[in-house]
Design a protein around this nucleic acid. Structure first.
Lengths: 313, 313
DNA sequence: ATCTCGTGATAACTTTATTCTATCAGTGAC
DNA sequence: GTCACTGATAGAATAAAGTTATCACGAGAT
């Protein structure tokens, strides 16, 4: 007869609970700030969609029907669930109180984020990141596919769907074994590197191609037989005398505090660097906040890592 | 700016969940059986009331925003709560699948309901009664106050707000100690009772006044110093020789199967009875079913207790 | 480059819900 | 009886939800 298969209306459920509480249409109406006929018709509508009589009305008052009595608690649960829902929404109305999926290159994340995230947390207590490592190629793909909300990447491929805010420039340091013929000097002439065997990461890393490029210019040869899977293996390979390598400044800043079997230096007059940007889709709803976020990144990096990198912006 | 303090609409939450599931407005629209612009405007309305952007739209598709992602599960919980609510309502749309608060006199309930409720349960598996004992006076008050939905009572006070369906007539048996001078006879002349000491229940029971009445007519005296608090104490008092008593036929039928230190008989040519009705408020939403229920009571009592009582109706 | 197809957004309109004010018709207390 | 109180009803105004037709943009194939 009645009751199409339609969902009831939360507002009506709210009315129901209030009338049940007050045992009176009129006082419930006053409490709810609506007129009494509104309640009459809305409760009637709810009863129709549910197919159940909720109240026993008499000229001398109103009370719950047996069915209404049993439905009262489930109704309150619906309202509570809806309150949880909209409360959560309200707190997240502020973009700085949400959890974002942040993608970082595995050659950067572990050496950058420990310096940044604690301070960021101090500034936005409810801002959270779900951080995932990935090679830059996958980062960009993943960003476009919606697997990430934010990505820190070198931003080598420009696309109209993507917005990048430059964060900082990171030097790549030249690393050689302590017993290498060039060890001991702080600056090395690019020409001296000719014919050196340069080790790199495996080619799923953007890092790989950058090194390839540099080596081509310098005339050094890249040892492709032994490609490291992480910066740590790369370092080990250099220590073991398998060749020389370029290692990111932040890695060295983080991991090579103590003297070791390695010598770290730079090429004179030829700064080799990585550029890092904070990247997001141009359609991302958080884009305004993301831009603000990039500012905080720069600020914090400037405070924490000024000695190791050069902040942009 | 946006977001008045109003409750969201379940329908919109449902739309939200479906679009999130399909990652597409169009296919979600098809799935939901509405047009695509409806979704556009309803999702936009929901976003406005929540103050949060739920989706990241692009010309090539739709996906959840970070906030929407976190709101998806709470949204589903709201829907589930609402489904539980309306499912429960649907099953209770049938008046025979609800729990009613049934009030019975304590001098009747324990001796009647065990014969009735099992068969009633067989006929209406989901029909339940929350049974409470009370003296008939409280029963009627409680019924009017809405503390009971149904009451079995003698229905001595007629009221325009109350509807009563007569169920059956129960004889009151005359009970004397086995060693009483009148013991052994099945029928006793009313005149023989003159000057006997008759025991009764305490006066909160309607039973009390009925006995008082009978005794006045018969010229018997009522022992008011010792009033029993239950039919069982009354029986014990008779066994102990403190007097004689009238006990309800159903009590005797239930409790006195085995021969005992008691003799049970009747007054000849003077049937003493209680009448029992099923009573409810004339405004009770279940009133149609209650009338039907009264029929089932009569039927079942006729089957189970024909030897002890006389069914009416 | 251009075309086509698929995306969500928009406009203009219709239908359905929601709400209001004013009024009615019983009930209960005095 | 009278009066104050209930919830129900009528009719009108407003708000919300739905429709069809169309647009503008991006992606992929030609």
């Amino acid at each position: 007869m009645a009751s199409k298969d339609r969902l009831p209306v939360l507002n009506q459920i709210n009315y129901f609970v209030e009338v049940a509480r007050q045992q009176s249409y009129r006082s419930a109406a006053q409490q709810l700030g609506v007129s009494q006929p509104t309640l009459t018709s809305q409760i009637a509508a709810l009863e129709k969609t549910l197919g159940v009589t909720l109240f026993e009305r008499s000229r001398s008052g109103t009370q719950l029907s047996p069915q209404g009595r049993m439905l009262l608690e489930p109704a309150q649960e619906v309202l509570q669930a809806s309150l949880r829902f909209s409360d959560l929404a309200r707190t997240m109305a502020d973009d700085s109180q949400t959890t974002y999926r942040l993608g970082v290159p595995s050659t950067l994340g572990p050496y950058l984020l420990p310096y940044v995230l604690p301070e960021l947390h101090a500034r936005f207590a409810k801002l959270k990141f779900y951080v995932r490592d990935a090679p830059p190629l996958q980062l960009e793909q993943g960003l476009l596919a919606g697997e990430f909300d934010l990505v820190i990447s070198p931003m080598y491929s420009e696309s109209s769907q993507i917005i990048a805010a430059e964060l900082f420039v990171e030097p790549l340091k030249f690393v050689i074994p302590s017993d290498h013929r060039l060890a001991g000097q702080q600056f090395i002439e690019p020409a001296d590197i000719k014919d050196e065997s340069v080790l790199t990461l495996e080619n799923s890393h953007h890092f790989h191609y950058q090194i390839l490029d540099i080596c081509n210019k310098l005339g050094a040869k890249v040892l492709r037989d032994y490609e490291g899977t992480s910066l740590d293996t790369l370092r080990q390979m250099v220590v073991m005398g398998m060749g020389v390598a370029f290692l990111p400044g932040l890695y060295i800043h983080s991991e090579l505090h103590r003297p070791e079997a390695l010598h770290v230096c730079e090429l004179s007059n030829m700064p080799i660097v990585r550029r890092h940007s904070l990247v997001w889709r141009n359609t991302a709803p958080g884009r305004v906040f993301f831009r603000e976020l990039a500012g905080h990144f720069r600020e914090i990096i400037g405070q924490q890592l000024a000695s190791a990198v050069k902040v942009l912006g």
